[in-house]
Each structure stands twice: as structure tokens, then as C-alpha cells.
């Protein structure tokens, strides 16, 4: 169909179809208005004082932690596939000729014409952005934020550096490093399920608290503590965070959630920075070998 194809009767049919879709979607959302079933959400909220103070973090990384593992995989795969499209890892059958691959090329932009003011303010801004990313990462279990946000902020700092200073920017990360850190991030996340799997049989069981002391969720007989008393007396209770609420003090146990956050941050940094780097500078196998 050429570009004029949707201007005749087909265009009218398409508009009618869109209107039907709009009517359908809006009536269904209209009926949902005020009728949203609360379902299991209040349960999650009720358990919040025993998990991380940031309930969204505990939902994303603890209750539905495995969903987030695959979701992290989505961004890893996104980076893998988009870099594959540019040229990393294109395969050929031996002895069979195909189309010539597209020549790798890098975008042209001239770094030297940069405004002096921007040039001198770039470095502090990048430093601030990286610091902010680390702040978001470390505070994820107690405040809003998390690994993904950290990764995005960090990679925006990287993009800023690339635009201001070219390839040799203050955050001079190589492609190999980015690929490795992305993979390491995802595998940290995947392997953090292993301790829980080996001890309790549930993958990604939040081992932080229940193995150290006994279970905290009311109504469930938690696991007996495996850690000997002497250790607990020596080190206290490092996995507990006491939440002083108006109606009592709750022992909150983020457990492995902060560690998962770090894995996710690594993965997102690797993936998004790699996408930026390869989109701007292309991928060249020969060049990679010579480096």
C-alpha cells in the first residue's frame, strides 16, 4: 500500500474502526471508574511494615521479584538485539553468500566547537549525576527509587559526557566493559535466588531475615533460625530495620532487596550505556579486535 492508500475509502474505514476501538476502550474504562476491585493489593500493603519501608520496592523485588528478573532480562535482550542489529554478532553460514552487511558508521558531531561554559560545567554535572544515581540506588529500600532509576540516571550522565567530550569522556567505559557489566548485573540478580533455593526450596526466598532469626510474617510459622545464637549476639540483627510507627515498632526486613537493586543497576547501566555508545559510534568487529 502506498502512502495514498489510506486516503480513500480505506481511510474512512480505518477511521471508523478507530472510533469503534475508542468507544470500546473508553466505555470499559468508564465502567472501571470507581469500581476498581482492590483484590490482593491491600494484603501487600498490610504486610508492608514487615518488609522494606518502600512498599513498591518490596513488591517489585520481593513479592514479584521473579517477574522483575525477567523484566530485567527484557532490557538486557533489548540491548543485545539492538546492538546485534547494528552489527555485533551477525552470523553467516559457511560458504553461503548473503547480502552485504550495512557498513558500520559513526555519527558525526564536532566536539571541539562546544561552548566554553558547557565544556567547563560538564564535568561537575556528570559528577553530580553519578552521585545522584548512587544515592537513588542506596536508598532504594527505604525511599522511592531503585536499580532501574539508578541505571537510567547514570546512563544519562554517560550520554551527556559523550555529547560534551566525545568518545574520550570522563566516564570512559569501553564496549567490552559495558557488555560484561550488563551480563554481570543480570547474573547477580539471577543468582541471588540461589541461597533461598538451596535453603528453603523457594527460588528467590528472601533469606535476609528468616534464616537469621525466625519468621516475621504474622500467622505463618517461619523457618527456624539457622544462624547460631552466638553470631546473633555478636553482630546483632543486621537485616532488621526498625520502623517506629505511631502504633508500635515494626521490624522491617528488606533482606536481599538492596543487593538485587545493585544487580539491576549494573544491568541497566550496561544495557542502556551500550545502546547509546553503539548508536552513536557504531560497531566494528575489526576495530574491536585491534583494541
Amino acid at each position: 500500500m502506498d502512502s495514498k492508500g489510506l486516503k480513500g475509502s480505506r481511510g474512512i474505514i480505518a477511521v471508523i474502526a478507530l472510533m469503534i476501538i475508542f468507544v470500546g476502550v473508553s466505555t470499559s474504562l468508564l465502567q472501571l471508574n470507581g469500581n476498581v476491585a482492590r483484590g490482593i493489593s491491600p494484603e501487600y500493603n498490610e504486610l508492608a511494615p514487615y518488609e522494606a519501608p518502600n512498599n513498591l520496592a518490596s513488591w517489585v523485588y520481593d513479592y514479584r521479584g521473579f517477574d522483575t528478573l525477567i523484566e530485567t532480562g527484557v532490557i538486557y535482550v533489548g540491548a543485545l538485539v539492538s546492538v546485534l542489529a547494528i552489527g555485533r554478532g551477525i552470523v553467516r553460514v559457511k560458504g553461503v553468500e548473503g547480502d552485504a552487511p550495512v557498513a558500520p558508521s559513526s555519527m558525526e558531531f564536532n566536539v571541539s566547537t562546544l561552548n566554553v561554559i558547557l565544556k567547563y560545567f560538564g564535568v561537575p554535572v556528570i559528577i553530580l549525576l553519578v552521585a545522584y544515581a548512587l544515592l537513588v540506588l542506596t536508598g532504594a529500600a527505604t525511599s522511592g527509587g531503585g536499580g532501574f532509576q539508578c541505571g537510567v540516571i547514570f546512563s544519562s550522565a554517560y550520554l551527556l559526557g559523550m555529547i560534551f567530550y566525545g568518545r574520550k569522556n570522563p566516564l570512559n567505559l569501553s564496549k567490552k566493559f559495558l557488555i560484561a557489566i550488563g551480563g554481570v548485573g543480570w547474573s547477580i540478580y539471577a543468582l541471588l535466588g540461589l541461597p533461598g533455593y538451596l535453603t528453603t526450596g523457594y527460588w528467590q526466598y528472601n533469606v535476609g531475615a528468616d534464616l537469621w532469626t525466625s519468621g516475621v510474617i504474622p500467622g505463618v510459622d517461619g523457618m527456624a533460625a539457622v544462624v547460631p545464637d552466638i553470631l546473633r549476639q555478636l553482630f546483632g540483627d543486621p537485616f532488621r530495620l526498625l520502623l517506629v510507627m505511631s502504633d508500635g515498632t515494626y521490624a522491617s526486613t528488606a533482606g536481599i532487596v538492596p543487593l538485587i537493586n545493585i544487580g539491576e543497576a549494573f544491568n541497566v547501566i550496561g544495557a542502556i550505556c551500550l545502546i547509546f555508545l553503539v548508536f552513536v559510534y557504531g560497531w566494528n568487529d575489526e576495530e574491536e579486535k585491534s583494541r
Partner: peptide, 15 residues
């Protein structure tokens, strides 16, 4: 917001 601030009521949080 679904973040537990110190001093608020944990009992009223789920609602």
C-alpha cells in the same frame, strides 16, 4: 504514597 514514613500509622496504611 506507598512508602512508610516514621510516625504514621501502620494500621491505617493498607486502607
Amino acid at each position: 504514597v506507598s512508602i512508610l514514613e516514621p510516625g504514621t500509622s501502620a494500621g491505617a496504611f493498607p486502607e
